[in-house]
Design a protein around this nucleic acid. Structure first.
Lengths: 180, 180
DNA sequence: CACGATACTGTACAAATGTACGGTATACTG
DNA sequence: CAGTATACCGTACATTTGTACAGTATCGTG
C-alpha cells in the first residue's frame, strides 16, 4: 500500500478517534483500521501509540476501547443531564417518561441533582437567558435573594430572579419591559 | 446474596451506565458487576437486558462496550470541539498546542470547522453573551450584516456584530454603553 | 402451599479486542 | 550509496468481554 505524507494520516486518525469519542464510545483498533482501509491492526496501533506519545491521546493498556482524551488538570467531569419536556412537579423520577434526550454538561455536581429545561419568553433577557435557551437546573433545598430560580406556579414553570424582603417573596424578571 | 426491592437496583444501574457514558466510554458488564458488588456477570446482563427492553438503553450485541443512550429522532450528533486558549491567527492546525481541552457540543457541522473561545468583557451583553462565557465559533468564508463575528484586530480577538454599509465595515457591540 | 416472577450466584465458552513478532516499501539524510 | 526513519502489511496470541446454561433464594399471589 502506498505511503502517505508524514503526519497527515496521523492527524486524520486523531480526529476520527476524537469524533468517535464524542459519539459515545472510543473506537476499537479494528474499527479505525476499517475506517482508513488499513489491512493490519498493527498500523493503527503505531499511529495510536504515536498520538499517545505526543500527549494528544491517553490510553489504558489491555482494555477494550481504552482510549481517552487527556483532560485538563482540575477539569470538571462531563455528566449527561436529562432534558425534560415537562416540568417535574413531584419527585424527579416521575418525569422520566418525558425524557427528550440527554445533554452533555461539564459539572462537578452529583448527576442526579441536575436536569435541563427549554426557556420560553425573554423575561430574563438581561441575565443572558433568551427565548429558546436551554437552562440546566440544579435541585437544592433552599434559594436566596439574587438567585435565579425555576418557580412552579400551578402547572406552569417560570425562570425568575428571587427576592425576599420583609417576609414577602417576590419573583422579578430580568428585563425592564416586565413587572415583577 | 440478599435481594433488593424491585426496580431499585435497576435504576441505579441505569444511572451508573449513563454517567459512565458521559465519562467517555460505556462500562463493561464486569465493571458494572464490580461497582455494585455483584458476583456474577449474569446479574448485570439481566439488568441491562431489562433496561434495553424498557427502551432506556440501546445495546449492540456481541460488541465490547456496546451500550448507548437511545437518541431522539433527528437529534444532532455530539462532537468534541477544541477549546483554544489563544486565538488561531493562521490555519487552525497551528493552534493545536494551545489546546485547553475539549467541549461536547451538539451540532451537525463538520467537527473540523468548529472551535471554542472564552469571552472577556461584556460588550455583547444584549445578545446574551456575557463575560466568561464560552462561545463556539464556526469558520466560514464570509459573513453578512447582522452576523455575530469573531474579528481579529492585530493580535487581539473580539466578538462583535458585523455591519456593512456603503462599502464600509463596522463592528458594533451589543451593549448601549459602548460605541461601535 | 404451589406457582411464578424477581434478584442473584457460579461456571464455562466464544467472540471481540489489544498486543507482539516479523516483514516490505518508500522517503529522507549524510 | 549505506543508514535510518516512516508507513504499512500479515499473522499469531493472550486478554478482555459478551453471552449462555444451570442453580439458589426471596417475595408476592391465587
Amino acid at each position: 500500500m502506498g505511503r502517505t505524507p508524514a503526519g497527515q494520516t496521523r492527524e486524520k486518525v486523531f480526529r476520527f478517534v476524537r469524533d468517535r469519542l464524542a459519539g459515545g464510545a472510543p473506537p476499537t483498533v479494528r474499527e479505525v483500521m476499517e475506517a482508513f482501509g488499513f489491512r493490519s491492526p498493527q498500523t493503527v496501533r503505531e499511529h495510536l501509540d504515536a498520538l499517545v506519545e505526543d500527549g494528544r491521546l491517553e490510553k489504558e493498556a489491555g482494555l477494550a476501547r481504552g482510549l481517552k482524551l487527556p483532560g485538563r488538570r482540575g477539569e470538571a467531569p462531563t455528566v449527561l443531564v436529562p432534558l425534560l419536556g415537562r416540568v417535574p412537579a413531584g419527585p424527579l423520577d416521575a418525569a422520566i417518561e418525558d425524557l427528550q434526550g440527554h445533554l452533555p454538561v461539564q459539572s462537578r455536581r452529583a448527576p442526579g441533582d441536575l436536569f435541563c429545561l427549554r426557556v420560553r419568553g425573554d423575561s430574563m433577557k438581561d441575565a443572558g437567558i433568551l427565548d429558546g435557551d436551554l437552562v440546566v437546573v440544579r435541585r437544592q433545598p433552599r434559594a436566596e435573594t439574587g438567585d435565579v430560580v425555576v418557580a412552579l406556579i400551578g402547572d406552569e414553570a417560570t425562570v425568575k430572579r428571587l427576592h425576599v424582603a420583609r417576609g414577602r417573596v417576590e419573583l422579578r424578571p430580568a428585563n425592564d419591559a416586565y413587572l415583577p
